[in-house]
Structures are given as structure tokens and as C-alpha cells.
């Protein structure tokens, strides 16, 4: 009996496995490339009249190079993004880490946060707001690829453009997607800096999780 009580724990995987960390940092760099080169392209014909990004914010010293950065970055973004989505689904990471999102929990987390009660002791569990933000930014990333494709090839994918309400609307949607991602980035980076161990975990892998226990131990519990 005593023997069965002994938990047969094997060392688990790091919270952020190596492939995930690589994809995260590749994405971080590529997203910066896409965003700042996109600002360079934006400036050639502003969408919000009266608002343009200064030269400091642009990647590429003029439009052609912003465009070349953007059209080079898109491959890295798309390939890395597809790899991340396949990994997230196949490993079960999306299901276990990001779902379910319960509205009541979202409200509670927001209220807690407003009272400066940010619980971040346990890195292995995301709170409801984190889950929601991660799902939104993943969807925004996918939407950027779709609206980007519509802007890049508005004749070859004319059906897609029509679905979005025309070329100019597709441009606005692509811009809005960027704004959502930048908004996420501001929150994400701020929190990572406020709770540095989250940042370190994305570099080192973080605490080990998912320790294996024997069937017998399962029965006892």
C-alpha cells in the first residue's frame, strides 16, 4: 500500500518547450519587422488623414524598402505562424492553456487587476484575461495574413477583396489588425517587464510541468 502511495513522478517538460520558445522569439522579431515596415508603407498614403508615422518609426528609408522588408518578412511570419498553429493544436497547448475562457472569470480578473491584485505567482496557469488576449492576438495575426493577401493580390483574390467590402476597406482592416496587435504588444511587454520571471521563462523554458504519475497513483487520488 505504501508503495503505491509513493508518487512515481518523472521529470516533466519545461513550461515553454524549446520549439515554442524559438517560434515565440522569431515571431517577436518578424512582427516588429512587419509592423514598422508597414508603417513605412502606410506613410505613402495615410489612412487616418492627419496622422503619419515619423521617419524614426519606419523600417526602410523610403517606401520601396519598407515594401521589400514587408514582403520578405511575410514569409517568415507565415511559415513561423503556421508552425506555431500546428504545434499549438497538435501538442494540445492551445486546448490546455487557452481554453476554456469563461466570461465571469474575465470580469473577475479585470476587477482584480483594477484593484492591483495581479496574481502571477503561478506561471503555468493563464488567467482568463490572458487567455482572451492570447486568443485575440492569434486571431488578429491570422486576419493580418488574410487581409494582407487581399491587398497584395486584389485581382487574383478578388473574391476575398469583395468579401471585405473593397480594396480600401481591406487596407483599413489590415491597419486595424496592426493596431490590435500593437495594443496587445504594449500590454504584453509591460506585464513581462513588471513580472520579469515570465520573461525569463520564455528564455529558459521556465518551471517543469506535466510530471507523469503512475496509474496506481491516479487510482489512489
Amino acid at each position: 500500500m505504501r508503495e503505491t502511495m509513493r508518487p512515481l513522478v518523472t521529470a516533466g517538460r519545461p513550461l515553454h518547450p524549446l520549439p515554442l520558445r524559438i517560434m515565440h522569439w522569431v515571431n517577436a522579431v518578424v512582427m516588429l519587422v512587419m509592423i514598422t515596415s508597414g508603417w513605412g508603407i502606410y506613410d505613402d498614403d495615410v489612412i487616418i488623414r492627419g496622422f503619419h508615422f515619423g521617419s524614426f518609426w519606419r523600417l526602410g528609408d523610403w517606401a520601396a524598402w519598407s515594401l521589400n522588408w514587408h514582403f520578405a518578412g511575410m514569409w517568415f511570419l507565415a511559415i513561423n505562424g503556421v508552425a506555431y498553429l500546428v504545434y499549438g493544436v497538435a501538442s494540445g497547448r492551445f486546448r490546455t492553456k487557452l481554453l476554456p475562457i469563461r466570461p465571469a472569470e474575465v470580469v473577475r480578473t479585470v476587477v482584480d487587476t483594477l484593484h492591483f491584485r495581479i496574481a502571477h505567482e503561478d506561471l503555468t496557469v493563464y488567467n482568463a484575461v490572458q487567455k482572451l488576449l492570447y486568443v485575440i492576438v492569434i486571431l488578429a495575426g491570422i486576419a493580418q495574413v488574410v487581409t494582407g493577401l487581399a491587398i497584395w493580390k486584389p485581382v487574383q483574390f478578388s473574391g476575398l477583396v469583395a468579401l471585405m467590402g473593397g480594396f480600401q476597406t481591406a487596407r483599413v482592416l489590415h491597419f486595424a489588425g496592426m493596431a490590435i496587435i500593437v495594443g496587445f504588444l504594449v500590454v504584453h511587454v509591460t506585464l513581462a517587464l513588471l513580472v520579469p520571471k515570465t520573461l525569463l521563462a520564455m528564455l529558459s523554458g521556465g518551471p517543469r510541468v506535466g510530471a507523469q504519475v503512475s496509474d496506481k497513483e491516479e487510482l489512489v487520488r
Binding site: 498614403d45 486584389p154 480594396f167 487596407r171
Partner: peptide, 10 residues
């Protein structure tokens, strides 16, 4: 047809 400029206008 729609004229689309690389700058973004059309």
C-alpha cells in the same frame, strides 16, 4: 477598372 497605386490609393 480600379487603378491601384503601390502607395495605397486607388
Amino acid at each position: 477598372i480600379q487603378h491601384i497605386c503601390v502607395e495605397g490609393w486607388s
